[in-house]
Amino acid sequence: MKPEDLQRLVTATMPYGKYEGRPIADLPGAYLAWFARKGFPSGELGSLLALMLEIDHNGLRALLDPLRKRP
């Protein structure tokens, strides 16, 4: 993980599916867990989803709040 990955979680959006257009940081934990069971997509999207799952699973979503307020 790179420090910029945390910023990408609040700026990158889900490109497809039920939550298309929603920031990755706002995806529900159950949806992230579904990806973990089915397999994360390859590339940056999969890495970001896996990172967000870890953050959600450990109850650290508030860690991203200061990044949302950046200009």
Rank of each mutant, 00 (worst) to 15 (best):
K18L: 15
L67I: 02
M14P: 06
T11Q: 10
D56F: 05
R70C: 08
M1S: 12
P41V: 01
P71K: 08
G21W: 11
A30Y: 14
L45C: 02
W34D: 14
F35C: 07
A62Y: 10
L64P: 02
G59R: 06
A62G: 08
E4D: 13
L64F: 01
G43V: 04
E54G: 08
L27I: 10
K2P: 01
G59T: 07
F40D: 00
W34L: 14
G29M: 05
K2L: 09
T11P: 01
K38E: 15
R70Q: 15
A33K: 12
L49N: 03
N58W: 13
E44C: 04
L45M: 07
N58T: 13
P66L: 04
D65Q: 10
L60R: 13
L49W: 01
R70Y: 11
Y19R: 10
A62I: 07
K2T: 08
F35G: 03
G21A: 11
D56Q: 08
L53F: 05
P28I: 13
P28M: 12
A33N: 09
N58F: 13
M1E: 11
G21S: 10
K2D: 06
T11I: 07
R70G: 08
Q7S: 12
L45Q: 02
M1K: 09
A50Y: 06
L53Y: 05
A30G: 11
P41Y: 02
P41I: 01
G21Q: 11
D5A: 03
K2R: 13
R61V: 06
K18T: 15
R37L: 13
R22T: 15
G43S: 05
K69D: 13
R70L: 15
L60I: 00
G39L: 02
G46I: 01
P66A: 03
P41Q: 06
I55E: 05
N58H: 14
I24A: 00
A50C: 04
D65L: 10
R68G: 04
L67Q: 00
L67F: 02
H57I: 06
D65E: 15
L67K: 00
N58S: 12
P71V: 11
Q7H: 11
S47K: 12
G29T: 12
